[in-house]
Amino acid sequence: MSWTSHHRRGEILRDVVAAIDERRDGLLPMDLPGVADTFTDELDLLAALQLRWHTRLSGRIEAELAKQPMDLEDAVVGAWHAAADDLPGLRAVLDHYYERPADDAMAVALAKSQAKERVTLAVMAGRGAYADAECVRIGSMIEARARAEYVPSVRTPERKPFAGLVDMLRSVRLAA
């Protein structure tokens, strides 16, 4: 993959995440411009979204553990909540396709991904080791707790950056 195509893929993926956060219908937006040209199929897009979720979740876990290292499981659950708040549409897409994969290949890929995520949850909560066969089950329990205790945050709409000096002056004038 060339540098240009790598950046184009990242740009399209950001557009996809924005669209699914807006739609929140749990469906992959294969109709967005550039998606069909950038991703080979639904599984390819879903894999990129799964990686985005895992990266966000891992970063949130690290941040939570830095803040409250004494109760590891609470930190992991809090991190799951924060990641779900950051990427609500993405979480809805993953949940939708976990329950209703488009085909067998997607079901297999998502099952592997989900098992790895659950192992990560268990290990980061201090409840097992990567080689421990029980980690998937323990991680599943931690995930179930995170889902049961999850209350989506109410977010205020993000302020759009000023397009220029005229927009900034206009907003200041309107505020006065």
Rank of each mutant, 00 (worst) to 15 (best):
T156H: 02
S153C: 01
A129Q: 08
A148F: 14
R159I: 12
R145H: 12
Y150S: 02
L165S: 12
L165Q: 14
M141V: 13
I138L: 07
A129L: 07
V166A: 09
D167C: 02
R159G: 12
I142F: 15
R127D: 01
D167S: 03
I142Y: 15
M141W: 14
P161S: 13
A129W: 01
D167K: 03
Y150R: 04
A133T: 02
R155E: 10
G164S: 07
E134S: 10
I138E: 08
A163I: 14
E158M: 15
C135G: 02
M141T: 11
S153Y: 04
L165F: 13
L165C: 07
R155K: 11
K160T: 13
F162L: 06
I138D: 07
L165K: 15
C135Y: 00
R147W: 09
A133D: 02
A163W: 07
A133F: 03
R145G: 13
R155P: 06
G164K: 04
R137C: 05
D167Q: 03
V166S: 06
P157S: 06
G164V: 01
V136P: 06
P161V: 13
E143F: 06
V136I: 12
A163L: 09
R137V: 07
A163T: 14
G128Q: 03
Y130F: 11
E158Q: 15
E134I: 05
D132T: 06
I138T: 12
P161N: 12
V166K: 11
T156A: 10
G164L: 07
A131H: 15
R155D: 11
A131W: 13
V154F: 03
G164M: 08
G139D: 02
G126N: 11
I142R: 11
P161F: 14
F162S: 05
P157K: 08
P152D: 00
D132R: 05
A144W: 10
K160L: 10
T156E: 01
A146H: 07
K160P: 15
V166Q: 08
A163G: 08
R137P: 03
E134L: 09
V154N: 12
A146T: 11
I142V: 11
A129P: 03
V154P: 08
M141S: 13
P152M: 00
E143G: 10
K160M: 10
R147Y: 08
R159D: 05
P161K: 10
R155H: 11
R127A: 01
S140D: 14
L165N: 14
A144E: 12
A129G: 11
V154C: 05
A148I: 10
E149L: 04
R147D: 05
M141K: 14
A148K: 13
Y150A: 00
S153G: 01
R147E: 05
R127I: 01
K160E: 14
F162D: 06
A148N: 04
V154Q: 11
P157F: 04
F162R: 04
S140K: 15
A129Y: 03
G164Q: 03
S153H: 01
T156Y: 02
C135N: 00
E134A: 13
R147L: 03
A144D: 12
I138Y: 09
A129M: 05
A148H: 08
E158C: 15
V154W: 02
P157H: 09
R155C: 12
I142E: 09
R155T: 15
V136D: 11
